[in-house]
Write a protein that binds this DNA or RNA. Structure first.
Lengths: 216, 216
DNA sequence: TGCCTTTGGTTGACAGTGTCAACAAATCCG
DNA sequence: CGGATTTGTTGACACTGTCAACCAAAGGCA
């Protein structure tokens, strides 16, 4: 019998399971995650991961918790400057960068097939933190313009920023968009263009506008 | 043995399978779709659906094809008026209405776990049609403003409209947003507010703006 | 230190799934 | 009408998540 907590590349079994599961998800998507495959890859019996996770959902919830924590950290990572509006745009770039670097992870986070959040209360802590980062960005921007920023105004705009960025990154990842007859340049430039438009919708001067009164 | 093509509520078996599968997807999500459950519900052997669909993916592809066709029809359904900008906003409402009425279907269409489009070429025809409807709406709007509307400009804006609407409806459906501490009113009003902002970003006068130079 | 409890692993079984394969009845078509 | 095709049934297989029992190692405590 295998010694307990045998080292797996320097990790105990629990951490090794998480790492392996994340690797599978990142390459094949969460729907392909099987705990038996995790066990096989780690050279343990199929039941061993269940010693550390009550069910597949518990393992997945831990992965998701970590993913949202990384997401919040990515939004928070650009340093603050004395230009809040610019900071908000940079945060938008960080958002896109995160989703683009880890598309399958992003899909898991927002794809609608998560373990039940009520059974796993810490799973979404990172999502709440991320929203707080967005709120803060909006609030700094409004304050920088000496505009009133009551809670509901901040929330609405933070939510709009989120939905817009989410729309850009998630739609571009779909097969539906993949099959459209779009010029390669339209695809390549779209994300940046969309960020500019979202910024404009939030009242940020992002430079040239194609629609909205200016000409390119 | 069961008579062939026995009537299932007036449908042949193939159509009955599609209807049953759609019912399961619409209530439990596509990840819960099992062809054995479809067969059980129809009172046929577990292998019978495979007489009409080579695999689960083939059945799913047919469901998705129909869903995108419905989607395109929903975008197209509002009648044209002599106000193209207004028509575009109404189309946005139709988009939201479709996604809101059938959330699990919408999630299937854009969720990233579809059968391979290369194996099922007709699956995305409705997506291309829908994009054409968006293009047409943008083109009419630009023409109505006597603005130039070369193909790339139309495409960029149609894609922006799509990503923004998609962002709104899909993000609001996620568990991440479900766990945020948002005032109920902020949630209730968000969709309409977001539509207004997207409209504004496309240069449509949608009335009061919270940010963007006007005050509410 | 020795014994009991807990932890963490192994093995086996079960139910459910998609799919492969063989068989048989019904239908089609020349 | 007879042979071919279509359409259904039944059974098997491999894979999955989970239940259950067993056992060795480790930990705790008198």
């Amino acid at each position: 019998m295998m010694a307990r907590s045998a080292a797996h590349a320097g990790l105990d079994l629990r951490e090794a399971c998480l790492a392996e599961a994340l690797a599978i998800i990142s390459t094949a998507g969460a729907e392909k995650l099987s705990l038996r495959e995790v066990a096989r890859r780690l050279g343990v019996s199929h039941q061993a991961p269940y010693r550390h996770f009550a069910s597949r959902d518990h393992l997945l919830a831990e992965i998701v918790r970590g993913a949202f924590a990384d997401f919040a950290a990515a939004l928070r990572s650009p340093p603050h400057t004395d230009a809040p509006a610019s900071d908000l745009l940079v945060m938008g770039m960080a958002y896109v960068g995160f989703a683009t670097a880890k598309p399958l992870q992003y899909r898991l986070m927002f794809g609608g097939t998560l373990p039940d959040p009520r059974q796993h209360p810490e799973m979404m802590q990172g999502a709440r933190d991320a929203f707080d980062v967005l709120r803060e960005g909006i609030e700094r921007m409004l304050a920088g313009r000496s505009e009133p920023h009551p809670r509901d105004v901040v929330d609405r705009n933070a939510l709009f920023a989120w939905s817009s960025l989410h729309g850009v990154v998630s739609l571009l990842q779909t097969d539906a968009i993949g099959t459209l007859d779009l010029a390669p340049q339209t695809r390549a430039e779209f994300t940046l263009l969309a960020l500019q438009k979202v910024g404009a919708a939030l009242g940020i001067d992002t430079g040239n506008q194609e629609i909205g009164g200016d000409t390119q």
